[in-house]
Amino acid sequence: MVVKGSMIAAPNSNTHRKNLIPAIGYGAVICLLACLPLIFKSPYILHLFILTLIYIIAAASMRFIMTSGQIPLAHAAFLGLGAYVSAVLSKHVGLSPWLALIIAALVSMCVGIAISFPFARLKAFYYAMISLFFGVGLLQGIESLGKLTGGLAGITSIPTLFSTGSKVPYYYVFLALTIISLAILFRFESCRIGWNLKAIDQSYLVSSSVGISEVKYRVIAVAIGCFFVGLAGGMYANYNVTISPSSFDTTATLWMIIYVAIGGTNDFAGPIIGTAVLFLIPQYFSGLKQYTPFVSAAVLFAVIFAFRDGLVSIPRLIRTRYQRKKVKVQTDDS
């Protein structure tokens, strides 16, 4: 994993001005996103935007776990765990859906911590296997609790967060939740915790020799990742009203991995761009929907052959090519 930026800002007076340009950029993007319901009035398109927001949280949390070098193949199962906990609590126990959402995230986090302790020292491939089995098992477990979870058919008529039929309040609340989640994940990544995870990924031997505890930091990574994916699951359940196990199976995990990989695993923005491109575009052009696997495969090939670091690296590649050309022109002149 390539690492950019510095852990702490250089103590010079320019830092404030340097931070201003990205801040304006983020502000502009958020304003644009806030205007979307005014531009697109169709409920179907708003529905797609809302699902995209949910998957962005899921994919970003998955990438956070991946920074330490482990591949969590149980991630969609954790999305399902969050969804089911939230659905059961709000429907059968009668808790407020808002409270159920938070509890779903916390339950997902606790389960994540419980399974990551014994497996924290496994390397990528072995962890992938173990988590794959765990994910399948978790989903089977949920399915087998027939009375509570409705088995294969799932749960229907889950209490919703808002009583209105409009999707606009969902969009705004979920947008806010997404921004908060991403801000928290970004902070975790850019402080020493994120750096230690990247250090463990590069060499666990070297990192343990300077006092970084592999188990501690990997458990932290999984705890944070599972918290946010549980939150995303809860959002999904209380928005979508019905859930069934098939939405959270291994295929769903693989799609998340594809979102992260195509967007770019090295950049924080990777899963965000990847999800937006691969989830939204095929669904938006509904005529294309049946070709989704082909479109995704084409994008995947393009990424593998042309942009190793994912779609987010395209602007950077263009910039370096442009600079190289400029240097060449200068040398030609002289």
Partner: peptide
Amino acid sequence: FQLNPLFPNFTVLQNVISSFQ
């Protein structure tokens, strides 16, 4: 270490900074 004694994708300074734990 005899081989690969560092974090290859960090800069030299980042290597030392992240060794302060």
